[in-house]
Design a binder for these strands. Structure first.
Lengths: 255, 255
DNA sequence: TTGATGAAATTGTCCGGACATAAAGTGATC
DNA sequence: GATCACTTTATGTCCGGACAATTTCATCAA
């Protein structure tokens, strides 16, 4: 009997949460201002602190509120923004050809960046990096897929001895050997005319349009430890990213 | 006295959570198997149900466990995968130049896709789309930033009357008028030689390398309702995306 | 054997209380 | 006026209990 009423309603903490979301959206609590304390909400709605906290927990999870012991609760946003995300389960997926490629090194040696190269790499001239150039091929040993120049920061130059260049990638080895964690990868693309020597290795016409892709791998401190410049034949390859609307389900896991 | 021991340790529920994460990583609870019940964990660790639930809450949030009332708790994964994400707060940020650009239309009219155009758009030949071409300029009225061809799917062709092309974007208007929601944006890039007519409008040399960017806006059903093809001068523009390691903080908001 | 019924197990919700921890405010003292 | 100690306030952690909702399983009847 009395539970039939319950069954028709959402749980108390959810209804409270929705109420508060509505009040936030209405602008009753301006962004940056203080949100009512737990005690105030308990008194206002006649609920236990436990239930109030359960409702607020959802709001902090959605990025609407921020809490600090001793200080109180502040309003971060009026409503949850719609967010589009591009997700990678692992960095190796950055290669659309994934595990089906093989890096074939050609030259390696330390270089001091001159103006032009520094600009391409997004660094400043005069820095010293270890450079390894080569091409990346498919497993079927046909025409190379792209030309790459791989740069390792000075402290990690001697890692090249540990890398099985064909099977593994440098950033993975560097992370293992030096205990680093990749915290960020920046990927930039622009169009260029294929340089003659690269065109020859890729088997395309010199000067044909191609994509110059730069990847910068940064560790936790924000310092770049590996940079790769790659040239892809423009007419054969498409770089695709899919941005997907973030479903609220991913945040509402505690419901 | 007794709290000095507390102060040195993390809270009980966190230590329990770490313990369970370790046991999961060790493979003590195989993926797909049943996880110990709350009562079992309470008895084993001598803790209250509240604390045990607080620990488990973190594990479900990380996607390690899934729970079902009446049924129990099952193991979803041994450990949390490292995920890299590229986040957009709003789609207008897809324009790196954001609000500082203006679309200047040139031609518009319905077209039936021929083979070549269909391939560029990732569609099949014979479909009918509304095409609007033009250039996008900075607010300072200088040289155009890019050339664009914008395609609207047949059902939404007549929206063009409602759009203030200079201020707003088509996909926004279409979504408003027809009640659609953008659920996904696919972005592909390749390098091409700038066609003569585009080069003229952009003020660059014909045949110079440029980036051809295609964006496909899809609504919830997965159907594409707007496609844009844009050509950017290759040497002037860089398209950059930053992939950031998903910090556990975003999930551990309940800590 | 099948089907329905009810008990048991398990998670979900909600309440009460207590103390710890952190931040901010208050005031006395130098 | 600046600094230290104390008080106040608010959130964080932890315990206890109770009942609801859901699923599973055993039992019993047809």
């Amino acid at each position: 009997m009395q539970n039939s009423k319950r069954a028709l309603h959402a749980p108390t903490y959810k209804r409270l949460r929705d109420t508060l979301i509505g009040e936030l959206a209405d602008g009753q609590y301006p962004v940056g201002s203080r949100f009512p304390t737990e005690q105030a909400l308990c008194a206002r709605f006649g609920l236990s602190r436990h239930t109030v906290r359960e409702a607020i927990r959802g709001l902090t999870g959605q990025g609407l509120l921020s809490r600090q012991a001793g200080s109180g609760t502040r309003v971060l946003a009026k409503k949850q923004p719609t967010v589009f995300t591009y997700r990678l389960e692992s960095l190796s997926n950055l290669w659309q050809y994934a595990a089906q490629t093989r890096f074939v090194p050609e030259q390696e040696g330390a270089v001091t960046l001159h103006d032009d190269l520094a600009k391409k790499m997004g660094r400043t001239a005069g820095e010293r990096w270890m450079r390894i150039t080569g091409v990346r091929c498919g497993m079927d040993n046909s025409k190379p897929l792209c030309w790459s120049a791989l740069f390792l920061a000075e402290p990690y130059m001697d890692v090249r001895g540990n890398v099985n260049v064909e099977d593994s990638s440098y950033y993975e080895t560097i992370c293992e050997v030096y205990g680093l964690t990749v915290s960020e990868v920046e990927r930039s693309m622009s169009a260029v005319s294929t340089p003659a020597n690269v065109a020859r290795q890729l088997g395309i016409a010199p000067g044909a349009p191609s994509i110059l892709e730069r990847r910068t791998y940064r560790e936790t401190s924000g310092e770049a430890f590996e940079i790769t410049l790659s040239i892809y034949p423009g007419d054969e390859f498409m770089h695709t990213t899919r941005l997907v609307r973030e479903n609220d389900a991913s945040l509402a896991g505690n419901d």
